[in-house]
Amino acid sequence: MNSIFTEIYNDRLFQIIVSAIVAAIVSVAAIPVIIKISRLKNLMAEPGERSSHIKKTPTLGGVAIFASTLISYFLWSNPDEGEFVHLSISAMVILFFLGVKDDILVLSPKKKMYVQIAASALVVVFGDVRLENLFGIFGIDEVPYILSLPLTVFVFIALINAINLIDGIDGLAGGIGMICGGLFGLWFYLNGYFAMACLAASMAGSLFGFLRFNYSKTSKIFMGDTGSLIVGFLLTMFAIKFVQLNIAYRFDPNALFSAPILAIVVLIVPIFDTLRVFIVRLKDKKSPFVGDRNHLHHILIDSGMTHLQASVVLWVFTVVSTIAFLFITKNTDNTTSLYILGGLFGLYMWLSHILKARNAKRQELLDAAEAEAQKQKEIQEQQAILLEEKKLGKPALEIR
Protein backbone atom coordinates (compact mmCIF):
# COMPACT_ATOMS: atom_id res chain seq x y z
CA MET A 1 0.00 0.00 0.00
CA ASN A 2 2.80 2.41 0.92
CA SER A 3 4.51 1.73 -2.38
CA ILE A 4 1.31 2.65 -4.25
CA PHE A 5 1.02 5.96 -2.39
CA THR A 6 4.73 6.62 -2.94
CA GLU A 7 4.35 5.92 -6.65
CA ILE A 8 1.36 8.28 -6.89
CA TYR A 9 3.15 10.95 -4.83
CA ASN A 10 6.17 10.82 -7.12
CA ASP A 11 4.11 10.86 -10.32
CA ARG A 12 4.87 14.09 -12.18
CA LEU A 13 1.31 14.55 -13.48
CA PHE A 14 -0.03 14.19 -9.92
CA GLN A 15 2.46 16.79 -8.70
CA ILE A 16 1.56 19.23 -11.47
CA ILE A 17 -2.18 18.87 -10.79
CA VAL A 18 -1.63 19.30 -7.04
CA SER A 19 0.46 22.42 -7.71
CA ALA A 20 -2.40 23.96 -9.68
CA ILE A 21 -4.94 23.07 -6.97
CA VAL A 22 -2.75 24.37 -4.13
CA ALA A 23 -2.11 27.59 -6.06
CA ALA A 24 -5.85 28.13 -6.45
CA ILE A 25 -6.49 27.41 -2.75
CA VAL A 26 -3.71 29.74 -1.56
CA SER A 27 -4.94 32.46 -3.90
CA VAL A 28 -8.53 32.13 -2.63
CA ALA A 29 -7.34 32.14 0.99
CA ALA A 30 -5.01 35.13 0.61
CA ILE A 31 -7.18 37.54 -1.39
CA PRO A 32 -9.79 38.28 1.33
CA VAL A 33 -6.95 39.33 3.65
CA ILE A 34 -5.46 41.54 0.91
CA ILE A 35 -8.88 43.10 0.26
CA LYS A 36 -9.34 43.89 3.96
CA ILE A 37 -5.90 45.51 4.24
CA SER A 38 -6.45 47.44 1.00
CA ARG A 39 -9.69 48.87 2.33
CA LEU A 40 -8.21 49.74 5.71
CA LYS A 41 -5.24 51.53 4.13
CA ASN A 42 -7.29 52.92 1.22
CA LEU A 43 -5.11 51.15 -1.37
CA MET A 44 -7.84 51.33 -3.97
CA ALA A 45 -8.19 52.23 -7.64
CA GLU A 46 -10.33 55.29 -8.29
CA PRO A 47 -12.75 55.00 -11.27
CA GLY A 48 -11.37 57.07 -14.16
CA GLU A 49 -12.53 58.28 -17.53
CA ARG A 50 -11.47 55.03 -19.25
CA SER A 51 -12.51 52.78 -16.36
CA SER A 52 -15.25 50.20 -16.83
CA HIS A 53 -16.00 50.34 -13.10
CA ILE A 54 -17.82 52.86 -10.92
CA LYS A 55 -16.54 51.91 -7.45
CA LYS A 56 -13.18 52.16 -5.73
CA THR A 57 -11.57 48.72 -5.93
CA PRO A 58 -8.48 47.10 -4.33
CA THR A 59 -5.64 46.62 -6.83
CA LEU A 60 -3.22 44.28 -5.07
CA GLY A 61 -4.52 40.96 -6.39
CA GLY A 62 -1.11 40.43 -7.99
CA VAL A 63 0.34 39.88 -4.51
CA ALA A 64 -1.77 36.74 -4.15
CA ILE A 65 -0.93 35.60 -7.70
CA PHE A 66 2.79 35.99 -7.01
CA ALA A 67 2.74 34.23 -3.63
CA SER A 68 0.48 31.34 -4.64
CA THR A 69 2.45 30.68 -7.83
CA LEU A 70 5.77 30.40 -6.02
CA ILE A 71 4.43 28.49 -3.00
CA SER A 72 2.83 25.81 -5.17
CA TYR A 73 5.83 25.59 -7.52
CA PHE A 74 8.23 24.96 -4.62
CA LEU A 75 6.14 22.08 -3.23
CA TRP A 76 8.26 19.65 -5.24
CA SER A 77 11.84 19.23 -6.26
CA ASN A 78 12.24 19.75 -9.98
CA PRO A 79 15.53 18.17 -11.01
CA ASP A 80 15.08 19.17 -14.66
CA GLU A 81 14.84 22.88 -13.92
CA GLY A 82 17.65 24.84 -15.48
CA GLU A 83 19.43 27.94 -14.32
CA PHE A 84 16.97 29.99 -16.35
CA VAL A 85 14.12 28.96 -13.99
CA HIS A 86 16.03 30.30 -10.97
CA LEU A 87 16.76 33.49 -12.87
CA SER A 88 13.12 33.75 -13.94
CA ILE A 89 12.03 33.59 -10.31
CA SER A 90 14.58 36.29 -9.47
CA ALA A 91 13.16 38.43 -12.28
CA MET A 92 9.64 37.78 -10.93
CA VAL A 93 10.70 39.11 -7.54
CA ILE A 94 12.07 42.28 -9.18
CA LEU A 95 8.83 42.77 -11.12
CA PHE A 96 6.80 42.03 -8.00
CA PHE A 97 8.34 44.92 -6.09
CA LEU A 98 8.02 47.16 -9.13
CA GLY A 99 4.34 46.29 -9.46
CA VAL A 100 3.53 46.77 -5.77
CA LYS A 101 5.22 50.18 -5.73
CA ASP A 102 3.40 51.21 -8.90
CA ASP A 103 0.02 50.00 -7.59
CA ILE A 104 0.48 52.01 -4.40
CA LEU A 105 2.44 55.10 -5.46
CA VAL A 106 2.13 55.14 -9.29
CA LEU A 107 5.52 55.29 -11.02
CA SER A 108 6.50 57.08 -14.21
CA PRO A 109 6.42 54.95 -17.38
CA LYS A 110 10.17 55.46 -17.89
CA LYS A 111 11.08 54.04 -14.48
CA LYS A 112 8.81 51.06 -15.04
CA MET A 113 10.36 50.45 -18.46
CA TYR A 114 13.93 50.50 -17.11
CA VAL A 115 13.10 47.90 -14.43
CA GLN A 116 11.28 45.70 -16.95
CA ILE A 117 14.30 45.81 -19.25
CA ALA A 118 16.61 44.88 -16.37
CA ALA A 119 14.43 41.95 -15.27
CA SER A 120 14.07 40.67 -18.84
CA ALA A 121 17.79 41.04 -19.60
CA LEU A 122 18.58 38.99 -16.48
CA VAL A 123 16.82 35.97 -18.01
CA VAL A 124 17.85 36.63 -21.60
CA VAL A 125 21.56 37.20 -21.01
CA PHE A 126 22.29 34.90 -18.07
CA GLY A 127 19.53 32.33 -18.55
CA ASP A 128 20.00 32.10 -22.34
CA VAL A 129 16.25 32.35 -22.94
CA ARG A 130 16.53 33.77 -26.46
CA LEU A 131 14.82 33.90 -29.82
CA GLU A 132 17.76 32.28 -31.57
CA ASN A 133 15.98 30.92 -34.63
CA LEU A 134 13.04 32.22 -36.72
CA PHE A 135 12.35 28.86 -38.40
CA GLY A 136 12.80 30.21 -41.92
CA ILE A 137 10.25 33.02 -41.63
CA PHE A 138 11.09 35.51 -44.42
CA GLY A 139 14.11 33.31 -45.14
CA ILE A 140 15.66 33.87 -41.69
CA ASP A 141 16.81 30.87 -39.69
CA GLU A 142 19.51 31.36 -37.08
CA VAL A 143 19.60 34.80 -35.45
CA PRO A 144 23.12 36.03 -34.55
CA TYR A 145 23.70 36.02 -30.79
CA ILE A 146 24.35 39.76 -30.59
CA LEU A 147 21.03 40.48 -32.37
CA SER A 148 19.02 37.88 -30.48
CA LEU A 149 19.63 39.61 -27.15
CA PRO A 150 17.94 42.97 -27.90
CA LEU A 151 15.29 41.22 -30.03
CA THR A 152 14.29 38.94 -27.14
CA VAL A 153 14.32 41.76 -24.57
CA PHE A 154 12.08 43.75 -26.91
CA VAL A 155 9.66 40.80 -27.15
CA PHE A 156 9.61 40.53 -23.34
CA ILE A 157 8.81 44.23 -22.92
CA ALA A 158 6.20 44.19 -25.70
CA LEU A 159 4.33 41.15 -24.36
CA ILE A 160 4.53 42.18 -20.70
CA ASN A 161 2.91 45.49 -21.58
CA ALA A 162 0.45 43.81 -23.95
CA ILE A 163 -0.89 41.77 -21.02
CA ASN A 164 -1.09 44.97 -19.00
CA LEU A 165 -3.10 46.64 -21.78
CA ILE A 166 -5.78 43.92 -21.90
CA ASP A 167 -6.28 44.18 -18.14
CA GLY A 168 -9.16 46.61 -18.67
CA ILE A 169 -12.22 44.53 -17.77
CA ASP A 170 -12.94 41.82 -15.22
CA GLY A 171 -11.47 38.44 -16.01
CA LEU A 172 -9.82 39.15 -19.35
CA ALA A 173 -6.13 39.25 -18.41
CA GLY A 174 -6.61 36.61 -15.72
CA GLY A 175 -8.54 34.29 -18.01
CA ILE A 176 -6.16 34.72 -20.94
CA GLY A 177 -3.20 34.12 -18.62
CA MET A 178 -4.84 30.98 -17.22
CA ILE A 179 -5.66 29.57 -20.67
CA CYS A 180 -2.26 30.37 -22.20
CA GLY A 181 -0.43 29.08 -19.13
CA GLY A 182 -2.46 25.89 -19.32
CA LEU A 183 -1.71 25.40 -23.04
CA PHE A 184 2.02 25.94 -22.63
CA GLY A 185 2.04 23.83 -19.46
CA LEU A 186 0.32 20.94 -21.25
CA TRP A 187 2.97 20.96 -24.00
CA PHE A 188 5.80 21.12 -21.45
CA TYR A 189 4.34 18.14 -19.56
CA LEU A 190 3.77 16.02 -22.68
CA ASN A 191 7.36 16.61 -23.75
CA GLY A 192 8.97 15.95 -20.37
CA TYR A 193 9.80 19.48 -19.20
CA PHE A 194 8.27 19.05 -15.78
CA ALA A 195 9.71 22.12 -14.04
CA MET A 196 8.24 24.40 -16.70
CA ALA A 197 4.95 22.47 -16.64
CA CYS A 198 4.76 22.83 -12.86
CA LEU A 199 5.47 26.57 -13.01
CA ALA A 200 2.85 27.07 -15.75
CA ALA A 201 0.28 25.02 -13.82
CA SER A 202 1.01 26.99 -10.65
CA MET A 203 0.42 30.28 -12.43
CA ALA A 204 -2.77 28.99 -14.06
CA GLY A 205 -4.06 27.75 -10.69
CA SER A 206 -3.33 31.06 -8.97
CA LEU A 207 -5.22 32.91 -11.72
CA PHE A 208 -8.17 30.53 -11.38
CA GLY A 209 -8.40 31.45 -7.69
CA PHE A 210 -8.01 35.14 -8.51
CA LEU A 211 -10.89 35.06 -11.02
CA ARG A 212 -13.28 34.00 -8.24
CA PHE A 213 -12.79 37.46 -6.69
CA ASN A 214 -12.22 39.44 -9.87
CA TYR A 215 -15.84 38.63 -10.80
CA SER A 216 -17.22 39.09 -7.28
CA LYS A 217 -19.75 41.88 -6.68
CA THR A 218 -19.01 42.22 -2.97
CA SER A 219 -15.29 41.27 -2.74
CA LYS A 220 -13.91 42.49 -6.07
CA ILE A 221 -10.17 42.93 -6.58
CA PHE A 222 -7.96 43.77 -9.56
CA MET A 223 -4.61 42.11 -10.30
CA GLY A 224 -3.03 45.54 -10.75
CA ASP A 225 0.38 46.08 -12.30
CA THR A 226 1.81 43.55 -9.84
CA GLY A 227 -0.25 40.79 -11.40
CA SER A 228 -0.04 41.88 -15.03
CA LEU A 229 3.76 42.25 -14.89
CA ILE A 230 4.25 38.79 -13.41
CA VAL A 231 1.72 37.07 -15.68
CA GLY A 232 3.09 38.87 -18.75
CA PHE A 233 6.66 37.97 -17.87
CA LEU A 234 5.90 34.28 -17.27
CA LEU A 235 3.82 33.93 -20.46
CA THR A 236 6.62 35.53 -22.48
CA MET A 237 9.20 33.25 -20.91
CA PHE A 238 7.01 30.20 -21.63
CA ALA A 239 6.51 31.29 -25.26
CA ILE A 240 10.21 31.91 -25.95
CA LYS A 241 11.27 28.70 -24.23
CA PHE A 242 8.61 26.85 -26.22
CA VAL A 243 10.14 28.18 -29.44
CA GLN A 244 13.67 27.32 -28.29
CA LEU A 245 12.76 23.75 -27.40
CA ASN A 246 11.18 23.20 -30.83
CA ILE A 247 14.18 24.34 -32.91
CA ALA A 248 15.26 20.73 -33.40
CA TYR A 249 11.94 19.97 -35.13
CA ARG A 250 11.89 22.90 -37.58
CA PHE A 251 12.75 20.66 -40.57
CA ASP A 252 10.75 17.64 -39.38
CA PRO A 253 8.00 16.88 -41.97
CA ASN A 254 6.03 15.14 -39.22
CA ALA A 255 6.04 18.20 -36.95
CA LEU A 256 2.51 19.15 -35.89
CA PHE A 257 3.10 22.89 -35.87
CA SER A 258 5.49 25.77 -36.38
CA ALA A 259 6.57 26.89 -32.91
CA PRO A 260 6.91 30.66 -33.56
CA ILE A 261 3.53 30.85 -35.30
CA LEU A 262 1.80 28.78 -32.62
CA ALA A 263 3.37 30.85 -29.83
CA ILE A 264 1.96 34.00 -31.46
CA VAL A 265 -1.47 32.40 -31.90
CA VAL A 266 -1.65 31.26 -28.27
CA LEU A 267 -1.02 34.90 -27.27
CA ILE A 268 -3.21 36.22 -30.07
CA VAL A 269 -5.50 38.40 -27.95
CA PRO A 270 -2.83 40.60 -26.28
CA ILE A 271 -0.74 40.74 -29.48
CA PHE A 272 -3.62 41.61 -31.82
CA ASP A 273 -5.18 44.08 -29.39
CA THR A 274 -1.91 45.94 -28.79
CA LEU A 275 -1.09 46.14 -32.51
CA ARG A 276 -4.59 47.34 -33.30
CA VAL A 277 -4.75 50.15 -30.71
CA PHE A 278 -1.28 51.35 -31.70
CA ILE A 279 -2.27 51.48 -35.38
CA VAL A 280 -5.56 53.28 -34.61
CA ARG A 281 -3.84 55.83 -32.38
CA LEU A 282 -1.14 56.55 -34.96
CA LYS A 283 -3.81 56.87 -37.68
CA ASP A 284 -5.60 59.41 -35.49
CA LYS A 285 -2.26 61.24 -35.00
CA LYS A 286 -2.16 60.45 -31.29
CA SER A 287 0.63 59.01 -29.18
CA PRO A 288 0.41 55.19 -29.20
CA PHE A 289 1.19 55.23 -25.47
CA VAL A 290 -1.73 57.46 -24.42
CA GLY A 291 -4.62 55.37 -23.10
CA ASP A 292 -8.13 55.40 -24.56
CA ARG A 293 -11.20 53.18 -24.93
CA ASN A 294 -10.11 51.76 -28.31
CA HIS A 295 -9.37 48.27 -27.00
CA LEU A 296 -11.60 45.51 -28.33
CA HIS A 297 -12.77 44.62 -24.82
CA HIS A 298 -13.99 48.22 -24.37
CA ILE A 299 -15.76 48.04 -27.72
CA LEU A 300 -17.49 44.81 -26.68
CA ILE A 301 -18.55 46.38 -23.38
CA ASP A 302 -19.86 49.48 -25.18
CA SER A 303 -21.87 47.21 -27.48
CA GLY A 304 -23.86 45.98 -24.47
CA MET A 305 -21.93 42.92 -23.32
CA THR A 306 -21.17 42.26 -19.66
CA HIS A 307 -17.56 41.90 -18.51
CA LEU A 308 -17.98 38.13 -18.35
CA GLN A 309 -19.49 37.91 -21.84
CA ALA A 310 -16.75 40.05 -23.39
CA SER A 311 -14.05 38.03 -21.65
CA VAL A 312 -15.58 34.70 -22.71
CA VAL A 313 -15.67 35.88 -26.35
CA LEU A 314 -11.93 36.58 -26.24
CA TRP A 315 -11.16 33.40 -24.29
CA VAL A 316 -12.98 31.36 -26.96
CA PHE A 317 -11.19 33.30 -29.70
CA THR A 318 -7.85 32.23 -28.16
CA VAL A 319 -8.75 28.55 -27.95
CA VAL A 320 -10.43 28.35 -31.38
CA SER A 321 -7.55 30.21 -33.08
CA THR A 322 -5.00 27.87 -31.50
CA ILE A 323 -6.85 24.72 -32.55
CA ALA A 324 -7.52 26.08 -36.05
CA PHE A 325 -3.88 26.99 -36.67
CA LEU A 326 -2.74 23.54 -35.58
CA PHE A 327 -4.65 22.20 -38.60
CA ILE A 328 -4.20 25.09 -41.04
CA THR A 329 -0.42 25.40 -40.74
CA LYS A 330 0.50 21.71 -40.57
CA ASN A 331 1.60 21.49 -44.21
CA THR A 332 2.27 25.20 -44.75
CA ASP A 333 5.64 26.91 -44.72
CA ASN A 334 6.23 29.42 -41.93
CA THR A 335 6.22 32.57 -44.07
CA THR A 336 2.86 31.60 -45.59
CA SER A 337 1.54 30.80 -42.11
CA LEU A 338 2.56 34.29 -41.02
CA TYR A 339 0.70 35.76 -44.01
CA ILE A 340 -2.40 33.79 -42.98
CA LEU A 341 -2.00 35.19 -39.48
CA GLY A 342 -1.71 38.67 -41.00
CA GLY A 343 -4.96 38.08 -42.88
CA LEU A 344 -6.64 37.09 -39.63
CA PHE A 345 -5.36 40.30 -38.08
CA GLY A 346 -6.86 42.26 -40.98
CA LEU A 347 -10.22 40.56 -40.34
CA TYR A 348 -9.85 41.36 -36.63
CA MET A 349 -9.23 45.04 -37.48
CA TRP A 350 -12.23 45.16 -39.84
CA LEU A 351 -14.65 43.52 -37.41
CA SER A 352 -13.45 45.82 -34.60
CA HIS A 353 -14.00 48.85 -36.85
CA ILE A 354 -17.51 47.69 -37.84
CA LEU A 355 -18.45 47.05 -34.22
CA LYS A 356 -17.07 50.40 -33.07
CA ALA A 357 -18.90 52.24 -35.88
CA ARG A 358 -22.12 50.46 -34.92
CA ASN A 359 -21.60 51.49 -31.29
CA ALA A 360 -21.02 55.10 -32.36
CA LYS A 361 -24.19 55.06 -34.50
CA ARG A 362 -26.21 53.59 -31.66
CA GLN A 363 -24.84 56.19 -29.25
CA GLU A 364 -25.69 58.91 -31.74
CA LEU A 365 -29.30 57.67 -31.93
CA LEU A 366 -29.49 57.45 -28.14
CA ASP A 367 -28.18 61.00 -27.81
CA ALA A 368 -30.70 62.22 -30.39
CA ALA A 369 -33.53 60.41 -28.60
CA GLU A 370 -32.40 61.87 -25.29
CA ALA A 371 -32.26 65.38 -26.80
CA GLU A 372 -35.75 64.92 -28.27
CA ALA A 373 -37.07 63.66 -24.93
CA GLN A 374 -35.55 66.69 -23.20
CA LYS A 375 -37.15 68.99 -25.78
CA GLN A 376 -40.57 67.38 -25.28
CA LYS A 377 -40.18 67.70 -21.55
CA GLU A 378 -39.47 71.44 -21.89
CA ILE A 379 -42.52 71.86 -24.16
CA GLN A 380 -44.70 70.04 -21.63
CA GLU A 381 -43.39 72.27 -18.87
CA GLN A 382 -44.18 75.39 -20.92
CA GLN A 383 -47.66 74.06 -21.69
CA ALA A 384 -48.23 73.48 -18.00
CA ILE A 385 -47.20 77.08 -17.29
CA LEU A 386 -49.53 78.30 -20.08
CA LEU A 387 -52.50 76.44 -18.62
CA GLU A 388 -51.73 77.73 -15.14
CA GLU A 389 -51.55 81.34 -16.40
CA LYS A 390 -54.83 80.96 -18.29
CA LYS A 391 -56.47 79.86 -15.07
CA LEU A 392 -55.09 82.92 -13.30
CA GLY A 393 -56.05 85.25 -16.15
CA LYS A 394 -52.45 86.22 -16.96
CA PRO A 395 -51.15 86.78 -20.51
CA ALA A 396 -49.94 83.58 -22.19
CA LEU A 397 -46.25 82.90 -22.79
CA GLU A 398 -45.10 82.12 -26.28
CA ILE A 399 -44.23 78.50 -26.72
CA ARG A 400 -41.23 78.01 -28.92
Rank of each mutant, 00 (worst) to 15 (best):
4 I>A: 11
4 I>M: 09
5 F>D: 03
18 V>M: 11
18 V>K: 00
20 A>G: 15
21 I>K: 01
24 A>S: 14
25 I>L: 15
27 S>N: 14
30 A>I: 15
31 I>Q: 04
32 P>M: 08
32 P>I: 12
35 I>P: 00
36 K>I: 01
37 I>C: 00
41 K>T: 09
45 A>P: 10
49 E>F: 01
53 H>P: 09
59 T>S: 05
62 G>I: 04
66 F>E: 09
70 L>K: 00
72 S>Q: 10
74 F>W: 03
86 H>A: 13
89 I>T: 11
96 F>L: 14
98 L>C: 12
99 G>F: 03
102 D>N: 05
103 D>Y: 04
109 P>D: 13
109 P>M: 11
110 K>M: 11
112 K>N: 09
115 V>D: 03
118 A>G: 12
123 V>R: 01
123 V>A: 04
125 V>F: 04
126 F>E: 04
128 D>A: 13
134 L>C: 08
140 I>C: 02
141 D>P: 03
141 D>F: 14
143 V>N: 03
144 P>D: 10
148 S>H: 08
151 L>V: 10
152 T>R: 00
154 F>Y: 04
156 F>I: 06
158 A>E: 02
159 L>Y: 05
166 I>H: 00
172 L>M: 07
172 L>F: 07
174 G>N: 05
175 G>M: 10
177 G>V: 01
178 M>Y: 00
179 I>Y: 05
185 G>Q: 08
185 G>W: 02
190 L>E: 15
195 A>S: 15
198 C>H: 01
198 C>T: 14
202 S>N: 08
203 M>R: 00
205 G>V: 15
206 S>Y: 09
207 L>D: 14
209 G>C: 03
211 L>T: 07
216 S>A: 14
226 T>W: 00
227 G>T: 10
229 L>T: 07
229 L>C: 10
230 I>P: 01
234 L>F: 14
236 T>W: 01
237 M>T: 09
238 F>D: 12
240 I>D: 08
243 V>N: 11
244 Q>Y: 08
244 Q>C: 11
245 L>R: 04
246 N>T: 06
248 A>C: 05
249 Y>Q: 08
251 F>A: 07
256 L>V: 07
256 L>R: 07
259 A>S: 11
261 I>D: 12
269 V>T: 12
274 T>E: 09
278 F>C: 13
278 F>N: 12
280 V>W: 06
284 D>L: 13
287 S>W: 04
288 P>F: 12
297 H>V: 08
299 I>T: 15
307 H>S: 12
308 L>N: 06
312 V>Y: 03
313 V>D: 00
313 V>P: 06
314 L>N: 00
314 L>E: 03
317 F>K: 13
320 V>T: 12
323 I>D: 10
323 I>W: 04
326 L>N: 02
326 L>Q: 06
327 F>P: 02
331 N>L: 09
333 D>T: 11
335 T>E: 13
336 T>H: 02
342 G>I: 04
343 G>E: 13
344 L>Q: 00
347 L>K: 04
349 M>L: 14
349 M>E: 12
351 L>D: 02
356 K>T: 09
356 K>L: 08
358 R>V: 07
359 N>G: 03
360 A>F: 01
363 Q>F: 06
364 E>K: 12
365 L>I: 15
368 A>Y: 10
369 A>N: 15
370 E>G: 07
374 Q>I: 15
375 K>Y: 09
378 E>H: 10
382 Q>M: 15
386 L>D: 11
387 L>F: 08
387 L>C: 03
388 E>I: 05
390 K>L: 10
398 E>V: 12
